[in-house]
Design a protein around this nucleic acid. Sequence first.
DNA 1: GCAAGACAAGTGCATATGCACCTTTTCCGG
DNA 2: CCGGAAAAGGTGCATATGCACTTGTCTTGC
Lengths: 154, 154
Amino acid sequence: MRKATFEERSATLCNSLALRQAARHVSQIYERHLAAEGLRASQYSILSTLGRCGPQPIGALAQRMVMDRTTLGRALKPLERDGLLEIGPGPDGRTRSLHLTATGETKLAAAAGRWQEAQAEFEAAFGTQEAADLRATLRRVIAVTGEGRAGQGA
Amino acid sequence: MRKATFEERSATLCNSLALRQAARHVSQIYERHLAAEGLRASQYSILSTLGRCGPQPIGALAQRMVMDRTTLGRALKPLERDGLLEIGPGPDGRTRSLHLTATGETKLAAAAGRWQEAQAEFEAAFGTQEAADLRATLRRVIAVTGEGRAGQGA
DNA sequence: GCAAGACAAGTGCATATGCACCTTTTCCGG
DNA sequence: CCGGAAAAGGTGCATATGCACTTGTCTTGC
């Protein structure tokens, strides 16, 4: 076995820490651009997914967004408060149906431009192809970690 | 230009969202293992870095851990409360010196085993070499996003 | 020795994150 | 029809995250 390089000795060995650090940093770029529309990055992702996939219950959206049901449930509050989406009754007495309001659609359209700015800023620094490769890798990360404990969904 | 594949159309295009999703999922593995020692993943990373790099002020540790100074500052509270580290006065009247207590050292040693379990679980599913490659990629992500707005540090 | 600016840290606010536990509704077997 | 399991959400708690602003301390030029 060869000797460890300086990089290997000094750098983060923890996959979890490395991911969280990178996520924090990259998110800040998106937060900065989206702030112009008064949206957080996570809020944009919720509106965007809801706009793309149409009205659906909370659990379904949470699964689609690969996030915890309760986290999403609470994240909806500010969006509902600001009139961007509504939480109506679902076909079932248990379920609730999420849908964008007209205001939400407008905000989403405006924010999409900001998102593209952020996306462009990151990819200009990191590389467009490299970013696509990274996303593919991250999809695989989610796939392999999801199997072991699919829990609520799948 | 060729047509988009199904994967490309349905998958997350947002680098920020992809990173946060993956970070959440992977962190859960580490949280699950470290819970046996009563530590959160982020707490382990703090103790670990502090143990490896020795006593230092808050700002320095925050920079080293690629996290916000105020986030770290608050994260220290529970660790201090549980007697794992102490926040004493630094050489300077402004700075405060962080250092592990004996209890903290012991806890860190015990938690290290749990961390290895988590690391092994993830790498068994994702691949050891692939994980190393991913960490290298993430280091580059942090490097390129850090330049534009070094702000507090560098 | 002092005032201006730099520097380290703390605080208020708002949101993000997820586990354990609880309530309400269905659904299904008998 | 009833009783229990399953499904969908909600809540309490604890921590994570970071911006703007404040406070206290040092450094430096004069």
